[in-house]
């Protein structure tokens, strides 16, 4: 703190602190507190708000516990988000490794450009593109039938596979760049030394590259997991009843059931349990918060 004061002077320091406080209090803490307050009250019409029925209750949380459908959708969401994270990692790791260690400095900008260009298009539009590709009468089915690989078109939309493919595609960048940053800082001599000492490529990755890139992997996985678990657009467009996402249940409470208090309780539980899940995973893989902050 005194370091900041010395460097920027009292006026600028006050401005920086005020802006940070505004950000944390007005945009993070207050909305969350409001949501928690909402989640602990029953849903009432305006005429009865503040009346005798307007008391604090944990009923909204009990509802989730008692509703077996929502409980299983919640677990499914966590599981599917973990799967999305793992698949995104599997797709991105080779790409990031290639970019960081193998690609020539000349071709690197081109590769990054090719990765980034699709992301100049809005996420919703890219998801709609998948909707068209995966549709029952869509090009993918037509191609598969045309090649004689299947007799009848497959219903990709509405299946968990459709949602997972859509999500892996949407979140690739959030995984590639943290991985690239981490792998890029690895001295190439270490890899060559390992090879000279007779190590196979699998062992090089397992013993040298991955441990070095651990903070980057953690950041990429946390971002992908949180985005996947909190995603609404992709499951709403590509999903169906057999692949419902917990966010859709929250949306449903707000925009179809009209019970905002119940929705707030669900949203808060999703937040708490996702954070808990991530902290648990970080402990399991022995990643500290300080590593991630690097």
């Amino acid at each position: 703190m005194s370091e900041v004061l010395r460097r920027y002077g009292p006026v600028l320091t006050a401005v920086i602190v005020a802006l940070c406080a505004f950000w944390v209090v007005m945009l993070v803490v207050l909305p969350q507190l409001l949501m928690i307050d909402f989640s602990l009250r029953p849903s009432l019409p305006p005429s009865r708000v503040g009346g005798p029925d307007d008391v604090y209750t944990v009923q909204n949380y009990v509802t989730l516990w008692n509703n077996t459908i929502h409980r299983s959708i919640f677990l499914q969401t966590i599981w599917a988000s973990a799967l999305v994270t793992a698949l995104t990692f599997a797709v991105c790791y080779p790409v990031a490794y290639f970019m960081a260690q193998v690609a020539k400095p000349k071709t690197l900008p081109l590769m990054i450009l090719l990765l980034v260009i699709p992301f100049w298009i809005n996420e919703l539009l890219r998801t709609f593109a998948w909707y068209i590709i995966l549709a029952f009468n869509g090009p993918l089915n037509q191609a598969l039938v045309g090649l004689g690989l299947i007799d009848q078109p497959i219903r990709f939309l509405g299946s968990p596979a459709g949602v997972i493919v859509g999500m892996v595609y949407v979140y690739i960048l959030f995984m590639v760049f943290p991985l690239y940053n981490a792998i890029e800082s690895l001295d190439r001599n270490q890899i060559e030394a390992a090879r000279d000492l007779g190590s196979g490529w699998l062992r090089i990755h397992r013993r040298i590259v991955i441990p070095h890139a651990k903070p980057g992997i953690a950041v990429g996985c946390i971002m992908t997991f949180m985005l996947a678990a909190g995603s609404y657009a992709v499951p709403a467009l590509l999903g169906g009843p057999s692949s419902r996402w917990f966010t859709e249940i929250i949306y449903n409470w707000f925009f179809e059931g009209g019970n905002w208090n119940q929705g707030a309780a669900y949203a808060f539980i999703l937040l708490v349990l996702c954070v808990g899940f991530i902290l648990g995973m970080m402990r399991l893989f022995k990643v500290g918060l300080t590593d991630v902050a690097k």
Partner: peptide
Amino acid sequence: KASVGQFWSNENEAQGAFRTNG
């Protein structure tokens, strides 16, 4: 339930069911 190919909730989805979803 197995009869249902697609659930719709708005105009767009209802048309999509016939247009592209078989």
